[in-house]
Amino acid sequence: MYDEELLERGLHPRFRGEIPGVEPIKLLNASCGDEILVYLKVSDGKILDGKWNGNGCAISLASADFFIESVVGKSLDEAKMFTREFSKMILSEKYDEKKIGAAKAMKCVSRMPARAKCAKLALKSLDMI
C-alpha cells in the first residue's frame, strides 16, 4: 500500500493554504474529480513562496504538499528539474535520487501506473505559470 509518510503527509499537509494576492493555478484530474489550486509567488524567475489547496485522493494531496516543499526557494529552472526527476521516479524510470529529497515518500506510486496522473497533478502548475 501507500508509504506511511505519504499517508501522513496527505492527512496532515504542511503547505496547505492560500497566498493573498497570488492568482491560483487550477488543476483538475477529470477522471477522479480531484481539484487542486496551486499558489506560487514568483519573482525574477525564483519561487519565493508556495501553497496549495483543494480536494483529492491521498496521492494527489501528498504530492501537492511535497511539490510545494520541494520547489519553494528554487529558481523556475531548478523547480522544473525537480519535477522532471520526480516524474521519472513515478514512471519507474531511472532518476536522480539526490534531486528528490523528501518527495521520495511518493516512490510507492511507481507501482500504481493508473495513479501517476494523481502524483503529477500539482506539478503541472509549473508549466502553466
Binding site: M1, C57, A58, I59, R115
Partner: peptide, 10 residues
C-alpha cells in the same frame, strides 16, 4: 474521509 480512488487502491 477516504477518496474513492484510495478505497479502490486499498
Amino acid at each position: 474521509g477516504v477518496h474513492p480512488h484510495d478505497v479502490a487502491q486499498i
